[in-house]
């Protein structure tokens, strides 16, 4: 049966270049390290480093959360409450691993010491899909609810949840990050906008992005306060400077259909991926020189993509994943050799 199946697939869907990326060569060297997660078909995603150096991920399709010891390679997977279908994992200041129950309207956490899971249901039945979550310095959890068109705030001390619905339907709040002043920013996957949230009042301030057709999966905030975002809808990389109000965009190397998705800024360098391409490229952008470099992300012996969220470790490596093939990966960026 296997031969019949693979024969059919290879005959009808042989290697093609329909969505081939434009890879950009350059001087930066990187190395990949990957871990294949135990449960098959789980669609691993969103790896993040905990304070103890362990790496957590979620298997959205496998309804699980996992912990990896990167030194030993040991992995342990924890089944989550029914139909949670976790969209992301984030670590709180106490080391608890929080997940968003994207299909059962919940946010919860797992205490690694006890293995016990605590779940908070959304207080509003319209709040159906907690999505991406991040903690501020006070330990407050902020999260988006894409299709519910809301953002939320959860106080882990008492479980209190506050929700705010955006005034414009279909904005689709997606990625979320906290700025240096402690205010959350989130991106719109439904229309051309970013939002700043007043952490004290949850009042929203919209930043309209310049190009119609813009949709933004994710954003990150650089040390200088600039907001870097992926213009997923138009295949561009963008920057908004809250201090000056300036917004600037650059076409991504693989063009309008490249669908940039995940993004992280490390030491002033912007990293993102072009998820519309096959292979899925990891792209590096240097804001000082406004130059790109990119690499095809391997997935074992094949290329099957894609990255949906990426974050950095404390020592500046990138944590990425390839959800199609149950892999979480670490990218080490090698310093350039000193000029002779």
């Amino acid at each position: 049966m296997q031969d019949k199946l693979t024969g059919y697939l290879a005959a009808n869907f042989p290697p093609n270049t329909r969505r081939a990326p434009k890879l950009v060569s350059g001087p930066i060297q990187i190395t990949w390290k990957e871990w294949v997660n135990p449960q098959l078909g789980q669609r691993s995603r969103d790896p993040v480093e905990a304070q103890d150096g362990s790496i957590w991920w979620v298997g959205q399709f496998g309804n699980l959360m996992g912990r990896l010891d990167p030194k030993s390679g040991e992995m342990k997977e924890y089944q989550l409450p029914p139909n949670a279908m976790p969209h992301t994992v984030e670590i709180d200041p106490k080391g608890n691993a929080w997940f968003t129950g994207n299909k059962n309207g919940s946010v919860g956490y797992l205490d690694p010491k006890t293995g016990k899971t605590i779940v908070y249901k959304m207080p509003d039945p319209n709040a159906k899909d907690p999505h991406t979550l991040v903690f501020d310095k006070q330990g407050i959890a902020w999260f988006t609810l894409q299709n519910s068109n809301m953002i939320g705030r959860l106080n882990p001390e008492n479980g209190d949840i506050k929700l705010v619905t955006l005034n414009t339907p279909g904005s689709k709040p997606y990625g979320i990050k906290i700025d240096a002043e402690g205010n959350p920013w989130f991106s719109c996957n439904g229309r051309p906008c970013l939002y700043k949230v007043d952490a004290a009042t949850m009042a929203l301030t919209e930043i309209k992005l310049p190009l119609q057709g813009t949709t933004v999966r994710r954003l990150d905030i650089a040390e200088d306060g600039k907001i870097w975002y992926v213009n997923s809808g138009m295949g561009r990389l963008g920057m908004h400077d809250p201090k000056t109000g300036e917004t600037k965009e650059w076409p991504s190397p693989s063009g309008p259909r490249s669908h940039p998705y995940a993004i992280v800024v490390v030491d002033g360098i912007v990293w993102y991926n072009e998820s519309g391409m096959r292979p899925d490229p990891l792209v590096r952008f240097d804001p000082k020189t406004e130059t790109f470099q990119s690499w095809a992300i391997p997935s074992g012996n094949i290329y099957a993509g894609i990255i949906r969220h990426m974050r950095a470790t404390r020592d500046g490596t990138l944590l990425i994943h390839q959800s199609s093939t149950n892999r979480i990966m670490q990218v080490t960026v090698h310093k350039r050799a000193a000029a002779r």
């Binding site: 693979t6 290879a10 042989p14 290697p15 969505r19 098959l40 096959r278 074992g300 094949i302 149950n326």
Partner: peptide
């Protein structure tokens, strides 16, 4: 996910399927 994939050889499809089941 099949029709819009990069496409693979027989061994490639075998490896990809092996990550799922």
């Amino acid at each position: 996910l099949i029709t819009a994939s990069l496409g693979y050889t027989r061994d490639g499809w075998k490896e990809l399927i092996g990550t799922m089941i």
